[in-house]
Design a protein around this nucleic acid. Structure first.
Lengths: 226, 226
DNA sequence: GCGCCATGTCACAGTTCGGTGACACAACCC
DNA sequence: GGGTTGTGTCACCGAACTGTGACATGGCGC
């Protein structure tokens, strides 16, 4: 399930709690505030993936937050309002909001709209593969485990990518030496083992009991998600 | 005023005419059809900027058109429906629609939503991109950092723009040599490194700890906003 | 249980890679 | 021509990476 870092700004505590709960249930990670000032600070400091802003806020209102955010960067924004006045919608969208949702809103609908906006924002984004806590971004060449970035060396990354390209299949050492190391002749070498070991040390919670890269004695290694 | 090539698909002739008139008044250029089949043909042949699809259509319905369009390309889609059922909204957005509007809709609102969707779709292609303190104006070919204009040489600018065109993606040296320098044969060269180094000296607050252009050892460089 | 063999583990040293500054040369503008 | 700017190349250095071999461990057949 996708997990997004959502910033929610809503001054009514009961509505805020309800939305936060609903969004969390949908699998999102939510941080919420009651004022626009706090929201702007959070955006600057924490770079959420998307902001959901109530229009009516004490102090800086949602539309104004949206305007200022737009000057900063590309952060997707959904405006939220109790009013359904057409003019509000127009003003909100002109301020740069990506969507405008009228309360009360079904959590499923809000979730779908969040996903639509994120999908659009990420349309240029890279191809990621997710295996439980392990996320491999082939475009950015980044590997993250439970959100934390893992540094892999070039060879380790090439080997991991090769294993991941064939999930569930056993790849033998000769094959891996050929495609990852470009060694066509060297038959016996502990190279692959050592490299697998290094990868395990980085991505396996308990390297002694690997859940991602499994040893198939006598044959080679197999990548299979837990 | 912006003029967009809009594809409108609506089977009810009176609604179709009314919408077409309203959108034309807003300054859009509109082509309309009554069926999904015609719409798909038009999309393939004419490449409109955005499609507005009624959900209830004879034959292939709007959601299905949307699904098929999504397989083709990134054409923005707004679904239009008389029904306001939450499930429809979810299904429509999951099918890849960028927005979902319930009829009857105020022309001004529809216009604002069209603009919002187009803005989002084009943000990647827009003239000016902002990454925190760094602003890159592709139209004026100017780069500013915290408001101060940075002078980049033509080659440096081409390289930076190429990196920025693929934010978050790792681009290897061979690719960069090909598209920025038009070198198809030269395999080994420190050209790219040297140029990156020069850009860093100009845009990175601390060139030794770059926040914009990151080195990915063994692979290449990645532009990603701080 | 025993021994064998495949694999895990680790430290180290040679190698590779990228950052950096210097420099040559070409293009361009006065 | 003389100065200025832009661009490609080179050499050097430190840091990061990688292959290797020695040894430990553990599974498996007997």
């Amino acid at each position: 399930m996708r997990v997004a870092g959502i910033l929610l700004v809503e001054d009514d505590p009961s509505v805020r709690t309800a939305l936060e709960l609903a969004l969390t249930r949908q699998g999102h990670s939510v941080t919420s505030y009651a004022t626009g000032e706090e929201a702007l600070d959070h955006i600057r400091a924490r770079r959420p993936e998307i902001a959901i802003l109530d229009v009516m806020l004490p102090g800086i209102d949602g539309v104004e937050v949206c305007r200022r955010v737009r000057k900063l960067d590309q952060l997707p924004v959904i405006l939220l309002t109790a009013r359904g006045d057409d003019l509000d919608v127009v003003v909100g969208l002109e301020a740069g909001a990506d969507d405008y949702v009228v309360k009360p809103v079904e959590p499923r609908v809000l979730d779908a709209r969040i996903r639509a906006v994120l999908r659009r924002a990420e349309s240029a984004a890279s191809d990621r593969i997710t295996f439980g806590d392990l996320v491999i971004d082939r475009g950015a060449l980044k590997v993250t485990l439970s959100g934390k970035e893992i540094h892999l060396t070039p060879t380790e990354l090439r080997l991991l990518l090769e294993l991941v390209r064939h999930p569930g299949q056993v790849l033998n050492r000769r094959y891996l030496l050929r495609v990852v190391w470009d060694h066509t002749h060297i038959a016996d070498s502990r190279l692959v083992d050592a490299c697998v070991q290094r990868i395990r040390a980085k991505i396996e919670p308990k390297p002694a009991e690997p859940v991602f890269i499994h040893t198939v004695r006598g044959f080679g290694y197999r990548f299979s998600p837990p």
